[in-house]
């Protein structure tokens, strides 16, 4: 008996050592792979400070001389020649009118997502609590809208939006609320169905109106789902290209993806200096947000994928 325990203890420690050893190798391998994985973004960052002519010719080097073959002096001179500070940024910002595009994207994303969260959570609660044919129909239509690709409605939607003068950052919120309602209502209803009705009944007996009941009792319980839906819809709206391109009055308002795409269209060929700088400016806010809200973003994406 004691021998057996000893033996198993030993084999356990052996396997623990082996696992640790393997783990160390895996860590090393994955450190290299994940660095390579994000290297395209790092390359763009470095090249955004280089002169136009040096970007496209060789984006992978920082000097046209080799440190080993040509010596340190030549090499460092090559670096000086290739880099010229933030000129790409001033150029890119000016060409794309970047800050206005950034403001436009931010405005549309924040208020569209806010509208979706507020109205769709209310609607979802109503749909679950009021059992009628029209609420059921609305729910089914929401499910249905989730499988319809945007190309199906792009022509008619953009023309309707145009006729109703929704082609501005405020009007497009209505379009996003309508097209984003499917997913939001679906996710919120899924959650409301799991809340027990007794709490709400108690609140109503205590004299709460439905509005008070919803905002003071129901909405606080829904918080995790609100975060999930907020992340999913924000990722969609912020990165969306075709919908704002077709709906917005493009001469007046551009979102970031539209501004990036225009950097190519207006010149035929691409000014890679300006492009690198604008790409960096477009990516950095996302990376910063990701660093701070990583936990929520990954959980949100996961919840959305499994339910959707």
């Amino acid at each position: 008996m004691s021998r057996n325990t000893k033996k198993s203890a030993r084999s356990e420690s052996v396997s623990a050592v082996r696992r640790a050893k393997h783990g160390w190798i895996w860590t090393l391998i994955f450190a290299v792979i994940s660095l390579l994985w994000i290297s395209p973004l790092l390359i763009v960052l470095i090249n955004s400070f280089k002169r136009k002519a040096f970007i496209f010719k060789n984006p992978f080097s920082i000097s046209r001389y080799s440190l080993f073959a040509d010596g340190f002096e030549k090499w460092s001179k090559g670096i000086e020649k290739a880099f010229f500070g933030v000129q790409n940024y001033t150029n890119g910002i000016q060409r794309t009118n970047f800050w206005s595009a950034f403001g436009c994207s931010l405005f549309i994303t924040v208020f569209s997502v806010a509208a979706i969260l507020l109205f769709c959570s209310m609607t979802a609660w109503y749909v679950v609590r009021v059992k009628a044919a029209y609420t059921k129909l609305f729910y089914v239509l929401c499910l249905f809208s989730m499988i319809v690709p945007f190309q199906m409605v792009m022509f008619t939607l953009s023309k309707f939006a145009n006729m109703m003068h929704l082609g501005n950052p405020v009007g497009i919120i209505v379009v996003y609320l309508g097209f984003g309602a499917g997913l939001a209502v679906f996710m919120f209803t899924g959650f409301v169905k799991s809340i027990s009705i007794e709490i709400e009944e108690a609140a109503m007996i205590d004299g709460c109106t439905p509005v008070q009941t919803f905002f003071k009792v129901v909405l606080p319980i829904m918080k995790p789902t609100v975060v999930t839906v907020a992340i999913l819809e924000a990722m969609w709206v912020w990165n969306d290209y075709l919908l704002p391109y077709l709906v917005l009055d493009i001469n007046k308002y551009k979102t970031i993806p539209i501004a990036v795409q225009f950097l190519k269209q207006s010149h035929g060929t691409i000014d890679w200096g300006a492009m690198m700088a604008v790409l960096v400016l477009a990516i950095i806010p996302i990376v910063i947000l990701y660093i701070f809200a990583q936990k929520y973003i990954i959980e949100g994406v996961l919840a959305g994928a499994v339910k959707g």
């Binding site: 209310m122 749909v127 609305f138 239509l141 809208s145 008619t156 939607l157 209505v174 379009v175």
Partner: peptide, 18 residues
Amino acid sequence: LFMLPTAIAFVIGFLAPF
């Protein structure tokens, strides 16, 4: 209050165009 705003936007943004 609860249904109408979403429903109107849904008609404009999805149902009618579809």
